[in-house]
Design a protein around this nucleic acid. Sequence first.
DNA 1: TATTGTTATACTCTATAACTATA
DNA 2: TATAGTTATAGAGTATAACAATA
Lengths: 162, 162
Amino acid sequence: MKKPVQVYPDRVEAPHVSDATLREFAGYHMKRAFNVIQADVNRTLKPFELRMVTFSTLTLIVDNPGLRQAQLADALAVERPNLVVIIDELERRDLIVRNRVPTDRRAYALNATLTGHRLHGQALAAVRGHEARMFRDLDQATKDVLISVMEGIRQYPEGSET
Amino acid sequence: MKKPVQVYPDRVEAPHVSDATLREFAGYHMKRAFNVIQADVNRTLKPFELRMVTFSTLTLIVDNPGLRQAQLADALAVERPNLVVIIDELERRDLIVRNRVPTDRRAYALNATLTGHRLHGQALAAVRGHEARMFRDLDQATKDVLISVMEGIRQYPEGSET
DNA sequence: TATTGTTATACTCTATAACTATA
DNA sequence: TATAGTTATAGAGTATAACAATA
C-alpha cells in the first residue's frame, strides 16, 4: 500500500514545517505533552462522568475528611469562586456533602458519601491505568526525576524574576 | 442499609492537607508545573501584547515563510477554526500578512512583516529569559531527559490504549 | 476589619459541525 | 468529491471584583 500522494505542484514553500526555535523551550514540549495527557485522562474518566479537576477534588475530599473549601482551593491551586461550581457538581451527584462547621458557621466541612467513595475507588483504578499507559516507556528512576523537576517548578513563587 | 454517618464533632480544621494519592501521578505534577510556566510566560509576553499561542504562531511564521494555515494548525496542534482568530489578531496588528497563493486560490501563504520580525526578536529574547528562570536549577542533561520524555508522550496516538 | 463561601463576569483554550470557494 | 479557510457555537479552564454572613 502506497502513501497517499500529496501534490503541491510548483510549490515554493517547504513541505515540512520547522519548529526549531520552539523546540529549544522545555515549556513548549510540556504544553504539547500535557495536552496529550489531559485528553487521555479525560477520556479515561468519561465513564465516571468525571474530569481531571473533579477527580482531583474528590480525591482530596476522600483523603481529607472534613476539609474546608478554602483549604481545598489552596491545595488544588484553584480560585475559590471556581471551586464552588466544582463542589456544586459533586454535591448534586451525591458524591460529597457540605456539612456546616459548628465552630465556624461561615465554613463547610466537606465529606465524601458512600457513593462518592465507591466511584472514587473505581476512577482511581482507571487513572492508574492511564498513568501506566502514558509513562510506560519510563523506568521508575526517570519518572522520579521528572516528578522532582515538576515539583521544583511548581514551587516557584509568583514574581520570582531574579 | 444505613446511611454513612457524617459526624466530625469537634474538628477545628485539618492543619495540613494530604495529597498523597494525587502525588503518585506524574500527570498531576505536570499540570501544576505547567500552570506555573504558563502564567510566567504570559507575564513575560504581556509587554509585547502576546500570549503563548500567539508567540508560537508568530515564531513558526517567521521560521517558515509562506506557510499555509492548515500546515500551521497541524504544526501547532491547534484546530483550524481556532487558528483563524489567532491569525486575525496577528494580521490586525500588522505583524503578519495573508498572501494569496497563486497556484491554489483557496490557500493563504503567511509571512511576517518587518514589524512582526522585530517584535518577534524582542519577544524571543524575553522568552529565553523566562525559560532560563524556570529551569535554572536543571543541568542540561536533565533538561534533555525532560524534553525527550515530553516528546515521547506527545507522539502517542489518540487511541493508544493497549 | 478580615475571612468563608458565593455571585457575576470575562477572557482564554479547546473542540465540532457546517458553510464558501476553490481544486 | 475533497481541501483551505471560515463562521458559529459550546464546553472547559482561569482570573478578578464585590457581596452577605460570620469571625
